[in-house]
Simulated scan of single mutants.
Amino acid sequence: MPQHHQINYVELPCRDLAANKAFFSAVFGWQFIDYGPDYCAFADAGLDGGFYRAEQTSDASQGAALVVLYSHDLEASLQAVQQHGGQINKAIFSFPGGRRFHFTDPCGNEWAVWSAVAEAE
């Protein structure tokens, strides 16, 4: 159930809905519902949202919000992103509390994936 004043949904541009659906399904296990030829909603992503057909891209260096996903195995996530056509634009790096990498999806949108620092480190 939607919560008052909480982030509820996010929408991102997408040049090729089929390519992004295949990528996010293969890499992250997301599910999709099509709403006509120019929009699809995603689920099983932690936060529901959708992709709308557009030529623009979402890029944090251009002022867009950066969507950050979590992974229990950062190296495996990076490998899956590369294997399914994502482009790594920032290799794994450390920051206080964890590590992360940035990538662009098949449509050119920038994302990040992070993982907490293991207690043994």
Results as ranks from 00 to 15, higher is better:
43 A>G: 09
110 E>H: 12
55 E>Q: 14
88 I>H: 06
99 R>L: 01
11 E>Q: 13
45 A>D: 06
11 E>R: 05
97 G>E: 01
84 H>G: 09
88 I>C: 09
90 K>W: 13
75 E>I: 12
74 L>V: 10
32 F>T: 12
99 R>N: 05
97 G>Y: 06
106 P>V: 10
61 S>L: 07
2 P>W: 04
4 H>R: 15
84 H>T: 00
1 M>N: 10
34 D>F: 04
41 A>N: 01
104 T>F: 00
21 K>P: 05
59 D>Y: 03
24 F>T: 06
1 M>F: 07
70 Y>F: 14
39 Y>R: 05
103 F>Q: 10
121 E>I: 10
67 V>L: 15
30 W>G: 02
88 I>Y: 04
88 I>V: 15
47 L>Y: 02
44 D>I: 03
108 G>N: 02
35 Y>F: 02
106 P>H: 00
73 D>G: 00
99 R>G: 01
90 K>P: 07
32 F>K: 06
52 Y>R: 03
32 F>H: 10
112 A>C: 00
98 G>P: 11
19 A>G: 13
22 A>D: 14
73 D>V: 07
62 Q>F: 03
62 Q>S: 13
72 H>F: 07
29 G>I: 07
121 E>N: 11
12 L>E: 08
90 K>G: 01
12 L>S: 09
54 A>I: 05
116 A>H: 06
73 D>Y: 02
41 A>C: 03
53 R>V: 01
106 P>A: 02
81 V>C: 14
17 L>G: 00
14 C>E: 13
119 E>D: 14
1 M>T: 15
35 Y>W: 03
62 Q>D: 13
44 D>F: 04
107 C>W: 06
42 F>S: 04
83 Q>I: 10
81 V>Q: 01
4 H>P: 02
7 I>P: 04
65 A>V: 09
39 Y>V: 04
63 G>L: 10
101 F>R: 00
96 P>V: 04
24 F>C: 03
47 L>D: 00
43 A>E: 01
89 N>L: 13
57 T>N: 08
49 G>Y: 00
45 A>Q: 11
82 Q>Y: 11
22 A>K: 13
2 P>K: 14
55 E>H: 12
62 Q>N: 13
88 I>N: 07
40 C>Y: 03
15 R>W: 10
19 A>K: 14
107 C>F: 03
115 S>L: 05
80 A>E: 12
96 P>R: 02
86 G>S: 09
14 C>W: 12
1 M>S: 14
86 G>F: 07
25 S>F: 10
85 G>Q: 12
2 P>D: 12
50 G>V: 03
60 A>E: 12
80 A>T: 11
72 H>N: 15
64 A>C: 15
38 D>S: 00
113 V>A: 08
104 T>E: 13
71 S>N: 14
29 G>Q: 08
24 F>N: 09
15 R>M: 07
27 V>G: 04
104 T>Y: 01
77 S>W: 08
113 V>R: 01
53 R>W: 10
75 E>Q: 15
40 C>H: 07
121 E>H: 00
75 E>N: 15
107 C>A: 15
103 F>S: 08
56 Q>C: 03
57 T>M: 06
103 F>H: 04
104 T>P: 02
15 R>T: 13
